[in-house]
Amino acid sequence: MNSIIDPYFLMEIFLKLLGYIPMTLGLAITSMVLASILGLFMLIIRMKKIPVLSKLAELYVLFGRALPTMIILYIVFFALPIALMIFAEKTGQKIEINQVPAVVFAVIGLTIHTGAYLTEVFRAAVQSVDKGQMEAAYSIGMTWWQGFYRIIFRQASVFAMPLMANQFLNLIKSTSIAFMITVMELFGAANVICADNNRYLEVYIVVAFIYWGMSVLFEKLFLVAEHKLAVFKKGSNL
């Protein structure tokens, strides 16, 4: 306790905090996957201009992006159980709301937040594809779904990849607020260690380092995915 930074202590908390990476990444990856599916649904609803639903999708995208993630998380954490309770009472079903772990609410909240952004990312990606591509698909007798899946989606995904990477890095950072609703992830654990040892600098240095490491790793992974998806652009200047 005599130097400002004690290397042994650094190592010790680093090893301790490693154990929380699975929770942080689990939150981020699960939310990302669910948000991608949600975003894709929203995109298709809007593209197909399905009456009512496309208005709702628009509203969702607006709110999902306008509200701070923390507020979304709180709303989900406090309001969802109440809504479920009322639902349970009305229908006479038994739902054990206390048994739902906080992680589930965290995933729901992060999914809602990220899904709204991804909807916009996907929309931009689809718009980046020349509209002649879909016309060509139609002209040879393909249906909207065939053209969307086999032509538009494939081309748009290359455009979407770097933006999704961005969103994912944001999401990794956003998982730190899951601590607010009692989920023990990386940042939460770091705070507990801080309080226990009354040493802040080392802990935050280590935790910053871990976040940085995860970001670098996933940035690379997304880049690899982008290159894999972009085989058809090989040699072009895009």
Partner: peptide
Amino acid sequence: SYNLFKNK
């Protein structure tokens, strides 16, 4: 403008 499928 040809409109060949660019991913193929």
